[in-house]
Design a protein around this nucleic acid. Sequence first.
DNA 1: TGATTTATTGAAAATCATTATCACTATCAG
DNA 2: CTGATAGTGATAATGATTTTCAATAAATCA
Lengths: 159, 159
Amino acid sequence: MMIEPNQPLPRTNSGSDLKTVLNKEGFRLTSQRQKILELFRDIALDHHLSAEEIHHQLVAQGEKISISTIYRALHVMVRLGLLQELELAEDRKYYELSTPFTSHHHHLVCVQCGAVQEFEEVSISDVGVGETQTRGFVLLNSQFTIYGVCPLCQSRLRS
Amino acid sequence: MMIEPNQPLPRTNSGSDLKTVLNKEGFRLTSQRQKILELFRDIALDHHLSAEEIHHQLVAQGEKISISTIYRALHVMVRLGLLQELELAEDRKYYELSTPFTSHHHHLVCVQCGAVQEFEEVSISDVGVGETQTRGFVLLNSQFTIYGVCPLCQSRLRS
DNA sequence: TGATTTATTGAAAATCATTATCACTATCAG
DNA sequence: CTGATAGTGATAATGATTTTCAATAAATCA
């Protein structure tokens, strides 16, 4: 970890391009960072990727980029509020585009097969907003994750 | 990972002692497992500990127990529904006693200093129950975690 | 525009929490 | 009480994430 240029900040996602957002915080626009963000913009809004997966995808499409760079870029983008970091069980972290919508979408994970389903629930985000306000916190992110066993795995286990 | 004896199960926390609960699933009662659970019962109900912290505490109070054993015991206890596994940011996992109450308590984490505050919110657990039911999942666990910056760190950053 | 400053990159080594291995011990069912 | 086998401890192995360091490339400014 390093991410020096500055201190954390509540959210910096409003109308401005990547370069502006980065420079504002002392970061620089690089082709690698553009590629990573483009990748996220090419897939479904609510789709999540791990560092490894991002690396695979980019290499597959001919880009020359190091896994270290992926990790560094992910940190920066989370810090800038461009991406959200997800703890979908397992051992690795996942990332998804941070839009006004994603803050209302949550995850249901099957601990057997690892399948992840998304679902919307505004009331949950509301709780997060309220809770941080009453305690004087600056809200950065919140996530509601449910762990369970999906129907398929249930029958698979019974057999 | 191994935890062989059986397949996952929804929750096994009802009225019976540790030995019974363990044996029912083919696990054995050992002094190490007792010590770990006692430790959790000695601290506040909503307090969470990492594997490392548990090991420290036990060694400090004179027990001779290996860190490997801690990890193995934690897996077993999560599997039996005795403990809940928490993803409180950072890189390590935390565990806390699983009571009828803890399922309604959630976490607010300061990403600066790492301080964690608990809060109750039944409506959130309800969403989890509803969501799993409509999708046919067996609910194992759910957690709502909010990440932000606490008041102290905010002023600390401003200065 | 060109020079200067310094963030960024890539590759490889280093971390560090968690897991697996293996020989030995202890629990539990019969 | 005894055999079958789960559990333990010590240590090696894993694997995701970080750090290091020399080389490169944005941003800034003259």
